[in-house]
Write a protein that binds this DNA or RNA. Structure first.
Lengths: 193, 193
DNA sequence: TACTATGCTGAGACAGCCTCAGGTTAAGGG
DNA sequence: CCCTTAACCTGAGGCTGTCTCAGCATAGTA
């Protein structure tokens, strides 16, 4: 019984493999930033100086590429949650983390959708990472609730609904609302106790 | 100077034209419901018993088809706003209208995105209808604010950000949250005075 | 040097978008 | 009833993009 890990994009073993893997990832980041998660995979391969088949070898699905390209950001988010939990007062920790999360979720157009998918879909490449982030958020939420600063009936799933909604709006706002998104502040009002 | 109306899908004049126009619209509604706004246009044409060129004759862009297929719903929303304004207390009128709006915006996957687009983009087929709806919402909002029930610093644009965020979450929720979406109720808490 | 697992290539099958040259027909006037 | 014509319809074909796979190349190892 081979442990059937679905399509985890893992760093390849041979030197040329690693080189290409990294080049593809770099090209992908640039392309996603410019054109959103729907950027042409053939373009990305070309930009990385690699044939299309090579791209598919390392990243069998578009989602696996997107996830690999944003994995670091997710990891950051988890680390930041721990730091905030230690350094800040519970409500402010949660609020600040939510701001960071929304910013990351809306790094480029289409990210939230894929993230939301792999949040609920086990067996996607970044489901593990997503779960970790889910826990981080849940911890911060619980702390703030225990401190009596957030309404106790709010669940972690609902929190992530709010975050992804906010991220989607940020992604799709034509206006140049780079600053602190009003959306999130309104939501915070709604969930405070 | 021809009044350059961009691509308004208007009911055609000849009998066969009207027949096909209606058949395409019906097929499109069914397809969108089943597969979201990304449904194959060739399939829709086939389902309507019409060649692909005919579909493009009546609906030069995908957005124009989506918009035509959902125009009635939008009109309903405008009508409902007037009714609610007369029959209900300002806050309840706004809240109920928001629930209806979110429901309509998430009729099928991908609708909010297109609607948001044509809200800000003049010259899209349904921009006029969208503006009307925007006004409806703004009126209800103003009434609720005047009655001192909604925070006075909330703008209509922000209201629509909230609505589209809620709709997106509803679209993309794997869970079967058909009932009153919690999201919206939380938002309402946040914007009440 | 020889072996082999790992990796690379790019042609090609397929699907969906969109256009346009050429053929068809509804509708109105004589 | 026929003519005329604007409105309409058709579907082949060019294009872009996805994804696969048979055959070739090579890094790493003994």
């Amino acid at each position: 019984m081979t442990d059937a890990k679905p399509y985890i994009a893992q760093r390849p073993k041979r030197a040329d493999g690693r080189r290409n893997y990294d080049a593809i990832l770099a090209a992908a980041r640039k392309a996603f930033e410019a054109s959103g998660a729907e950027a042409s995979l053939e373009d990305i391969a070309g930009q990385a100086g690699v044939a299309i088949g090579t791209l598919y070898r390392h990243f069998p699905t578009r989602a696996s590429l997107v996830e690999a390209a944003t994995r670091d950001g997710l990891a950051d988010l988890v680390a930041r949650a721990e730091r905030l939990a230690e350094e800040s007062e519970p409500l402010e920790a949660l609020a600040e983390w939510m701001r960071q999360a929304v910013r990351h979720f809306s790094t480029f157009r289409g990210l939230v959708g894929i993230l939301t998918q792999s949040m609920y879909d086990e067996g996607t490449s970044s489901h593990t990472m997503c779960s970790a982030m889910h826990s981080s958020g849940a911890d911060l939420l619980l702390a703030a609730q225990t401190a009596g600063r957030i309404r106790p009936d709010l669940t972690a799933d609902e929190l992530f609904d709010l975050l992804s909604g906010a991220a989607w709006v940020r992604e799709n706002s034509t206006a140049d609302r780079d600053g602190s998104p009003r959306f999130l502040e309104l939501i915070l009002e709604g969930i405070k106790e």
